[in-house]
Amino acid sequence: MPLGTSLGVVFGLLLFDNLALGIPIGVGLGLAIGSLLDEDAKKKGLTI
């Protein structure tokens, strides 16, 4: 989530010129990436 939030802030400032819009986008991106990685770890039988 921290990585997604930082990327969202950067994209929010570059694309939309709005910091407040970038933070929720980044949190959503971070949650999506995290859930994909968790799902992959479960398939491989790894401990989360």
Rank of each mutant, 00 (worst) to 15 (best):
M1Q: 02
P2N: 00
P2C: 01
L3M: 13
L3H: 05
L3S: 11
L3P: 07
L3V: 14
G4R: 08
G4Y: 05
T5L: 15
T5W: 10
T5P: 00
S6P: 01
S6H: 15
S6V: 15
L7C: 04
L7P: 03
L7E: 11
L7M: 12
G8T: 02
G8L: 02
V9E: 07
V10M: 14
G12M: 11
G12L: 12
G12H: 14
L13Y: 10
L13F: 14
L13M: 15
L13K: 15
L13H: 06
L13A: 12
L14M: 12
L14E: 08
L14F: 11
L15Y: 08
L15D: 11
L15W: 09
L15S: 02
F16T: 11
F16K: 02
F16M: 14
D17A: 11
D17C: 12
D17L: 12
N18T: 15
N18E: 14
N18I: 10
L19H: 01
L19A: 15
L19K: 13
L21V: 15
G22M: 06
G22S: 11
I23Y: 01
I23W: 02
I23T: 13
I23L: 15
P24V: 08
I25F: 05
I25D: 04
I25W: 03
G26D: 09
G26K: 06
G26N: 02
V27L: 00
V27P: 01
V27E: 01
V27G: 07
G28K: 01
G28L: 04
L29R: 07
L29F: 10
G30R: 05
G30H: 00
G30C: 02
G30P: 14
L31C: 12
L31K: 05
L31M: 13
L31I: 11
A32H: 00
I33P: 00
I33T: 08
I33H: 00
G34W: 11
G34V: 01
G34T: 14
G34R: 04
S35A: 08
S35N: 05
S35Q: 06
S35T: 10
L36I: 04
L36D: 01
L36R: 03
L36G: 07
L37R: 05
L37P: 07
L37S: 12
D38M: 09
D38E: 15
D38W: 09
E39A: 09
E39Q: 02
E39D: 09
E39H: 06
D40S: 03
D40W: 01
D40T: 04
D40A: 12
A41H: 05
A41I: 08
A41P: 03
K42R: 12
K42P: 08
K42G: 03
K43N: 04
K43W: 04
K43Y: 04
K43T: 02
K44L: 09
G45D: 11
G45M: 14
G45V: 09
L46T: 06
T47V: 10
T47Y: 00
